Simulated scan of single mutants.
Amino acid sequence: MRNIKLTIAYDGTDFHGFQAQPQLRTVQGTLEDALERLTGARIQVNGSGRTDAGVHAWGQIVNFHTDSRIPLEKWPIAMNVNLPNDVIVRQAEEVPPAFHARFDATGKVYRYQMDLGTYPDVFARRYAWHVPYRLNLSRMQKAAEHLVGSHDFTSFCNAATPVDDKVREIHGISFETRAHLLQITVTGSGFLWNMVRIMAGTLADVGRGRIEPEEIPEILAAKDRTKAGVTAPAHGLTLFEVIYPKV
């Protein structure tokens, strides 16, 4: 059996998230349907992680085991012929049998995009949260500095997050503006449910003066979701890259 690793991109607008769910259109289900048409076998796909409904990906990683002899360089072409136009296989690699897209990941990079124009950009409406307030970027950067490092992020995840250990390490947060679009890139060891969206919403609240940058350590220490800011909408979030150990 071969272990194939795919790098995929998708527009999450019309998906009910990544994870397969009965009777719902999901990225995992769509990939598995394509693999079945291609190989004649029902093959389970392992994802590096779940993305919620409406969240996009540029660098989602999946792997699967197959006895198909399709040449490695043909996998992207063969898959893309069998996929809808809102999912694209960008790269295929053959990896060791034990490789697992989720369990071998050591970090992830997410990007959250805000549309700061007076009126919504019709061409960015699927990929950026329109924030019709003047945001102070300097304040947001100061607040972000307090989020970098290893912290208990209970205040920055969905209250229903089904894990006990909510300590995660954020390696860096950067900001980039292009015309009226603000892109926030967050790199970390791992992320909790809604964590990046709550971070983005909180930073937006800092930028508009609702929260002071110096309050972030207190919000972290509270371990209380109600102390942080709003949960930014899903459509502004993109899973940009999944990080694995170099071999």
Rank of each mutant, 00 (worst) to 15 (best):
F153Q: 00
G47Y: 06
H56V: 00
L181V: 00
D104Q: 14
G12S: 07
V95L: 14
N63I: 08
W58I: 10
T106N: 04
T26D: 06
E73F: 09
A159T: 13
A57H: 09
A53L: 03
K246E: 13
K246I: 07
V242H: 06
V131G: 00
M114T: 02
V87H: 01
Q141R: 10
H151N: 12
D115T: 03
A228K: 15
A57C: 05
Y110T: 02
R125S: 03
V55N: 08
H130S: 09
R42A: 11
L181N: 03
G17H: 08
W75I: 05
Q23C: 04
E32V: 04
P84M: 08
R50Q: 12
A179M: 14
A98T: 13
L24F: 09
W129P: 04
E214G: 12
H56R: 02
W193L: 14
G54V: 05
Q91C: 12
H130K: 10
D86S: 07
A105K: 00
H16N: 15
K227L: 14
A57T: 08
D121F: 11
A92K: 13
F123Q: 12
P76K: 06
D164S: 08
V27S: 02
E36T: 09
E94T: 05
A221N: 05
V167N: 15
L182N: 04
F99Y: 14
Q44A: 11
F64P: 10
C157V: 09
T231C: 10
A204F: 00
S138Q: 12
A179R: 15
A105I: 03
T30Q: 07
K74S: 15
A234Y: 08
I77H: 14
I4T: 10
G236C: 06
P245R: 06
V27W: 01
Y119M: 14
P213L: 09
L220M: 00
P84H: 07
D205H: 00
P96S: 13
A222E: 10
L182K: 02
M114P: 02
A200C: 01
L35D: 06
V230E: 15
E93P: 02
L6E: 12
E169T: 13
A101L: 04
D205V: 05
K142H: 04
N3K: 13
R50A: 07
L147G: 06
R126C: 02
F64A: 06
A78I: 01
G107C: 04
F15P: 04
K223W: 14
T226S: 15
A53T: 10
W58M: 09
M114R: 03
L83G: 07
I243N: 03
H56I: 00
K142G: 03
H235T: 01
A53F: 01
L203D: 13
I88Q: 15
A92G: 11
H100D: 14
V131A: 00
D67Y: 00
G149P: 07
T202L: 06
F64N: 14
L220S: 01
A232D: 00
E169R: 14
G190C: 08
E218N: 12
H130N: 02
V206F: 13
I170P: 07
A124F: 08
V81I: 13
V131H: 02
G229Y: 06
T51P: 03
T185H: 05
A144C: 10
P162I: 02
G172M: 07
T231I: 11
Q23F: 11
V196Y: 04
A41Y: 11
V27H: 00
Y133C: 03
D164R: 15
L203C: 12
I4A: 11
